[in-house]
């Protein structure tokens, strides 16, 4: 498979996943704000922090009001990670690999892009929830269509790898920011401060129902929620689950048996994932959850870079470097770099 094509499929999936996560964060925050008693200031700043693009926001908007943050995350055409921009780039990537993906996948992307573009022209705030729901639904529908129509070939594995690495990144990020907001001081760990906030956090990852069902949990506690989102082996948005999926696809692409490694990227991802397998949430909390997540993000950043180096940036010759893959990975690196500064 052409490196450029693999790169486009990888990013097609990442952008769609990214848009879905932005929609979910936003939806949950809108709902949460409705529950906040009058007189207490609404919390929109954490949402901006989650994106890792705080500097961009402050430069263009200033204060984190509901209206500003919603505009920023939904339809801002200048902001590269708004829902609008994500779908635009998803479509652009899909269009450049139309002959590789199934026509059903293309139709999904084309239709959703149109829906988002239409909504961006006149969306009233009362329609916001419907819109966010549609964005989430479109992402699920794309994944379903992909699974139902695309052979389990290299294209499919690059897509799955992109989707799960993006998801792992987003789960770690929302947990990091929320944990920090909900538990400002380390001494508060273990106390039931703000159950509402923790429930909202679970909902941000569509994890509330599954958390309740999982046999280990009875109460919503910071440790329970963090453990579930980082380490649960069955929940499809937990970081460990995501890395495990990505690792399986990586090995299908390279042909190296799981549990062994030949190239650095296999080692980096395999090591990261298998370390998590033996980790307990208490250890993470002892180390400091923010410190742990910060390091995790750095490691995932290295994985992203490794994938780029291994598959997309083949034989870099000065004159013929692929502009698109560079641009895309650049925006992501920037994204992660700013995240580390918060």
């Amino acid at each position: 498979m052409l490196s450029r094509v693999a790169n486009s499929i990888y990013w097609l999936n990442r952008y769609i996943e990214r848009a879905e996560n932005v929609a979910r964060f936003l939806e949950v925050n809108v709902n949460l704000m409705l529950d906040i008693p009058n007189g207490i200031e609404q919390q929109w700043q954490p949402l901006v922090t989650t994106t890792g693009d705080r500097a961009f926001f402050e430069e263009h908007y200033g204060k984190a009001t509901a209206e500003n943050v919603i505009q920023f995350l939904t339809f801002d055409q200048q902001y590269p990670n708004s829902i609008f921009s994500c779908w635009q780039k998803a479509r652009e990537n899909a269009r450049s690999v139309r002959e590789i993906i199934s026509s059903e996948m293309w139709s999904e992307v084309n239709a959703t892009h149109q829906m988002v573009a239409d909504a961006s022209k006149d969306l009233s705030i009362s329609d916001l929830s419907d819109f966010l729901e549609q964005v989430k639904q479109a992402s699920h529908s794309f994944v379903g269509t992909t699974d139902a129509t695309l052979s389990r070939n290299e294209a499919w594995h690059f897509g799955r790898m992109g989707r799960f690495l993006e998801r792992a990144d987003k789960t770690s990020r929302i947990l990091d920011v929320k944990y920090y907001v909900l538990l400002p001081s380390a001494t508060d760990v273990g106390t039931l401060l703000d159950e509402l906030g923790w429930i909202a956090l679970l909902k941000s990852a569509s994890a509330y129902e599954m958390y309740r069902q999982s046999s280990q949990q009875h109460r919503v506690t910071p440790a329970g929620v963090s453990g579930f989102l980082i380490l649960d082996a069955e929940f499809p948005r937990s970081i460990q689950f995501c890395l495990w999926q990505a690792e399986q696809s990586l090995h299908r692409i390279t042909g190296t048996p799981l549990g062994s490694w030949h190239i650095p990227i296999e080692r980096a991802l395999g090591r990261l994932r298998s370390e998590m397998e033996y980790l307990m949430i208490d250890e993470i909390i002892d180390r400091g959850i923010h410190e742990y997540l910060d390091q995790l993000q750095q490691q995932m950043n290295e994985v992203n870079h490794g994938i780029y180096e291994t598959f997309f940036a083949l034989t870099p010759l000065e004159d013929t470097a692929a502009p698109q893959s560079q641009a895309q990975s650049q925006s992501q690196t920037q994204f992660l770099a700013t995240q580390q500064n918060h």
Binding site: L2, S3, R4, V5, T315, L317, P323
Partner: peptide, 12 residues
């Protein structure tokens, strides 16, 4: 067949 762009190709 593959659809390629100039940047996918190189003379080696």
């Amino acid at each position: 067949v593959e659809l390629v762009e100039g940047r996918d190709l190189v003379v080696v």
